[in-house]
Amino acid sequence: MTTAQFGDNDGVNDNRELGLRSWWSQQWPAIVAPMLAAAYLPLAVAASLPDELLRLNHLVLPLAVSYAVCGFCWALGYRLGRSADKGALVGIIGVVAFSSVGWIVTQLATSRADRAVGGRVGVIALWGLAALALDLAVVRSSVDLARLVRFLAVTYVFLVTYVGGKTAWSLLLPARDQPPAVSLDIRAPATPAEPPRDVYLIVLDKYTSSAVLAAHYGFDNSAFESELDARGFLIPGASRPNYVHTFLALGSMLNLRYLDELPQRFGRSNRRWDIAYPLVENNRLAAFLQSRGYRFVFVPTAFGATRRNRHADLQVPRAADVRPEVHAVWAHLTAAPLFRSLGCRVLGCNVDPLPYLPSSAKVIDSVFHELGHLPKSRHPTFVLAHFLVPHEPYLYRADCTHRPPYWPMHDDGPGADHVRAAYLDQVRCVNRRIIQLVDAIRAQSRIPPIVLILGDHGHGRLGRDLPDLQQVSPPAMLERISAFAAYSLPGVPADSVPNDISPVNVLRFVLRYYFEADLPPLSEATYWSGAIHPYDFVRVR
């Protein structure tokens, strides 16, 4: 076909088309490579998630921000270098640097390199400078970069095909992976004398004991305690946690024993928290109750140890609805929180970045409501609910209306009064919600249920990362190891629950009293460990 056959006009179009085709055959890698590079990390994060935490719409924000960063860098590289290849390379360098800075900061945190460059800000600045230097080298380069860009384009085709395919597979054919079986080594009669009661274990993160709230905060919690007392609760005034970190406290109470083997098993200098998380998910308490015909209802949270429970018969809410996990992990790896806090400095909003993406107050509200209105079942019910309140971020005012999330970097210093007020407001709101929940639970129970409400540990006001014991003042230590507790144990005489009982022994008591389990009381003990070396236990009480 020749242009003469179709006249001049068509010839121009054809030439244009030919020009476009030849341009595309030359330049496609410079367009395709950065486009795929921008998509890679969000898709890689999505592909790494368990199917039940994945939602397609959660990818929108990470992809949009990635494309914005990459597009901006591409345009800058193109303008300065006057070549599409240079634009592509600057775009890829930009998006890779943006996508990895959070990961680099986390890896170097508390290391010697981190201290040498002046901490987080130094690491970010150096990473940014390295990316800029590389960009400059690309822009000023006089070598032909087409081959390198073609190589990157082909490499990213492989990468994105793999992670995109895996993500699509997860979304189209979700498969719930099976948790390991839990060995049941608790001796108890198969059918106890009493009819089974529903069991509610409600863990309130960082709820300090009323005695310490009065002594350290000047806060009178007696109205709340009186309301619980009127509903038949026992309130051991000197209740203490077994461990000062949530995942250890939960791992211990849910397995009805101390975690004495962990320092040896993992090493005292081990820094990883997540290796102990299976103790929370695969716990003996839930396994025992399920073996006795209980329906296990679990409340997933934004905190890793209680993010989901694959043994649960019902999760309220569904784990994927707690927060957008792709978004949460992606934000943790990238410079997005940094840009957000810089933007906040300009706009004057709260500049303390949240250490992780929490679930919203709306989600917490709905959990409080739904636990009081669970679907009916012919089975007795065991509810394990770990609420991330009154722990930070502060999400509630005293009347339970929502406030902008606030998670201070420090609990002391000039902002100390503000922090204390925010914590007490959240405690007041939690008190209100708990009374509503207890009333709803009682209303939906045929026989009076067992309700255990307890703080996993107290506050301590020691900042975001719990220090080692040597760096903690005695009052702060006391505050951390004094936790609120209130137990509704139908039929149990008040004097059979010691005033300083800890969670491990309360749960052993419940199984002993109601299920005739062979679980004699253990001696009471409380262990301290800092956030950096969580298995370096020191007995403090």
Binding site: A44, V45, S48, L49, P50, L53, W103, Q107, R147, R150, F151, L152, V154, T155, Y156, V157, F158, L159, Y162, V163, R272, W273, D274, Y277, A302, F303, G304, R307, E325, A328, V329, H332, L333, P355, Y356
Partner: peptide, 30 residues
């Protein structure tokens, strides 16, 4: 660890494998 860990090792392995494949393809060694 407050997140589901995407696994830096897994991402690095993916990148390394894809880079080898990409290199082989671009240099027409297969």
């Amino acid at each position: 660890m407050l997140y589901v860990d995407p696994g830096a090792g897994s991402i690095l392995l993916q990148v390394a494998s894809a880079a080898v494949l990409g290199g082989l393809l671009v240099t027409k060694r297969w």
